[in-house]
């Protein structure tokens, strides 16, 4: 058993298609001007439907992080230890990634990151690299 691969749906398919092309996209609400992540069927702030896909520059800041030593499943135990971080992207949304590149000595809340893409079992996952 590998890692749990994303089961895409109509709301999220454009996101995963873009990731496969090495692009990080997110939804922006044209009514209330809020960015949101993950992709949804409506704006979770104003509940309108005027959502536009935009491409992120992939630059962000570490909001928090953890190094996982005790992984939840066999597939992740093979990868442990690994770092999970919540990243605040400059476009105004937050996402979870693994920090897979960069000088780990610099890993801290507030550290700057960029988005990189890693393929796993046929799926491209957006990931984080310390800038």
């Amino acid at each position: 058993m590998g890692i749990p691969l994303p089961k895409t749906n109509a709301d999220t398919q454009p996101y995963w298609d873009a990731a496969a092309e090495g692009r990080l996209i997110y939804q922006h609400c044209l009514t209330c001007n809020k960015s949101q992540f993950y992709p949804r069927s409506l704006c979770a702030t104003c509940h309108g439907g005027a959502l536009e896909w935009r491409e992120s520059q992939g630059q962000g800041t570490v909001a928090t992080f953890t190094e996982v030593l005790r992984a939840p499943t066999a597939a992740f135990k093979e990868l442990a230890p690994y770092v999970i971080a919540l990243i605040d992207l400059d476009e105004g949304f937050r996402m979870m990634v693994n920090i897979v590149e960069g000088d780990m000595e610099r890993l801290a809340i507030g550290a700057r990151t960029r988005t990189v893409f890693r393929e796993v079992d046929g799926i491209t996952l957006p990931q984080g690299a310390l800038a």
Partner: peptide, 15 residues
């Protein structure tokens, strides 16, 4: 954890 946006990253409850 979120099936598409957290679990592929190896999230657990302790994490």
């Amino acid at each position: 954890g979120h099936q598409q946006f957290e679990r592929p990253y190896g999230i657990s409850v302790p994490a």
